[in-house]
Design a binder for these strands. Structure first.
Lengths: 338, 338
DNA sequence: TTGTAAGCGTTATCAG
DNA sequence: CTGATAACGCTTACAA
């Protein structure tokens, strides 16, 4: 069926070893034979079977990546970043979606091992003990991106933005702008990196400023528009004294919150300042433009990929955890009270 | 290094054939041996090497997908759709980005063939003769998504939304709403499916309504915000008589146009109606909410994947071209003049 | 510089 | 039901 190295060898009147040599330029071959072989290869559109190659060389030039949802802009950018470094080095990426379900993640770990991937980039939602242990058993290096392992004692290579610091900085920014009543409208509490960690940063900033943390100023849901809307509603209804600013867990949440506030005729930023998170494409599309904390997921992908490359090369000195910088972006949904 | 079927066989005291049988449940094995083998497999975390399997069975359970840019929401959704059907059937997807560069696309075609993919989903930008010919030479079926082949005479399996009809309907919608001066602000003219085809639909609708097509009412650039901004500027500056409505090639273009109009104090939709294209996530985030023509890229991915599945199963009756429906979404950037 | 032959880790055929 | 053994398509000593 498909043309093999043997077909080429026969037609070119050489041994398969010679053909292999010209393909891989691994050993000198006389110009004459080389040309003849190339010609036959060209003519037959021969492509070496990489399965056979990989079987013997142990090199598949393939890495895996697991994300919850590729249609989510965050993971789209992340994947692009990863791809940019691997494609360039001749690696191919097998992309898997897990919907954030542990079951699927576990299964994918196995499938990818069967495929003999040389490394894995993993963006989970809840990187718990089970997962970490299973990753340990695989015989390829893995680096976590976007999410860190829940159990701190288990060291796994990770590239991530500092969620505590990022949220801390967001709140600090508001504080510096004269705000004191700052509410938090974030992601799920069971989301270790993007949920839990960020509340920690929120609280830390408040505490350092000597401001009491009020439970009624904290609302958590998922990262959706609807959750933003409902969360803001809750904040609005349950506080006689409204916050003057709210930090959110994502730009989408922020937009949902803004929608609710609009409905209630609350002016932004005059009555309430809103801070997004991520710096999504649409942050400058909405009016007023959204102040936010920018995370470069593309860069995060690049860094994670680079770390994985090191690990794949057997490096033992790759840092366990690397942070990708974030940046407070002041636009028009936040007001300076000073 | 990695544990092989032979290790398992030895430790379980059976032949490798038996191990293979219990792994694949391909032939009956006595309960006793079966259990013993499973136990050893479990204990050693054995995973069969799919390279070796594929080499002999000719089944890799792998398909390829080539998109210009995975961080682009359109391709994110498309990929998710594709993934949803293949993941379920135990297939794995290798994802490649081409940046829309012919050079890279050609190269990827080859790499994917070496990887022994069983099929390919291709989302190009300019699917020209060279490309089609090269795809023909590969020994896996391919279906085009999102873009059709430029040269009509070359039949390639394609799943796409009807760009001519979609833009025709958008203009028709505006016409029905009493608009007569309708401008077109679209994608690049060298983009066959999303550029060229859409202008055709635009012109067709106008002509059918007996309205003259004015060149000064047509602006083309890429699909970016900036292009939308600049295109609208051009339209604005080069026409003493402004259009009452403009159809665009993407929601992003629309937003760029709106920005320019805002700057010029032109009211939307009172002075000018704007029609987006795609129905992006942010279409309802901006105010007024964007009227647009909705394309479900997720569905497009699903359909394309299904067609590819058929082809991979050797079906010969798969339709050459299948259209995914579009839908006019009226929101608030378009005004009814009647 | 070239060819022969021994694997790589599986599956599949054929005896038993 | 079970076990040898020949492929699968390629790389890589080892010889020549």
């Amino acid at each position: 069926m498909a043309v093999t190295i043997e077909d080429i060898a026969r037609e070119a009147g050489v041994s398969i070893a010679t053909v292999s040599r010209v393909i891989n330029k691994t050993k000198p071959v006389s110009a004459e034979l080389r040309d003849r072989v190339y010609e036959v290869i060209e003519k037959n559109h021969f492509k070496p079977n990489s399965l056979a190659q990989g079987l013997i060389t142990k090199k598949t030039n393939t890495i895996g990546i697991i994300v919850p949802d590729i249609s989510n802009a965050v993971f789209g950018k992340l994947t692009k970043g990863i791809n940019s470094v691997f494609a360039q080095e001749g690696y191919t990426v097998v992309l898997c979606e897990s919907q954030g379900e542990l079951e699927k993640e576990l299964k994918l770990l196995g499938i990818l091992e069967e495929k003999q991937i040389e490394g894995l980039l993993f963006a989970g939602v809840d990187v718990n003990h089970t997962l970490v242990e299973r990753m340990r058993k695989r015989n390829y290096p893995v680096v976590l991106v976007t999410q860190e392992a829940s159990e701190d004692e288990e060291a796994v290579h990770t590239v991530i933005h500092n969620n505590v610091e990022a949220m801390y900085d967001a709140v600090k920014f508001l504080l510096d702008n004269g705000h004191e009543r700052i509410a938090y409208l974030g992601g799920p509490k069971n989301d270790f990196s993007s949920g839990k960690k960020r509340v920690i940063g929120y609280k830390k900033a408040l505490e350092e400023a000597g401001i009491e943390v009020k439970d009624s100023y904290i609302a958590q849901g998922d990262f959706s528009f609807e959750a933003g809307y409902q969360g803001m509603k809750k904040l609005y209804e349950e506080n006689s004294k409204l916050p003057t600013a709210v930090v959110t867990g994502s730009d989408v949440i922020a937009v949902g919150a803004i929608q609710y506030l609009d409905n209630m005729r609350v002016k932004i930023p005059d009555d309430i300042s809103i801070m997004g998170f991520d710096d999504s494409e649409f942050a400058t599309y909405i009016k007023p433009e959204l102040s936010t904390v920018r995370i470069s997921y593309y860069d995060e992908g690049v860094k994670a990929a680079e770390m994985l490359r090191e690990l794949m090369d057997g490096s033992t000195e790759a840092p366990m955890k690397e942070y990708v910088p974030h940046k407070i972006i002041r636009r028009s949904t936040t007001k300076n009270l000073n």
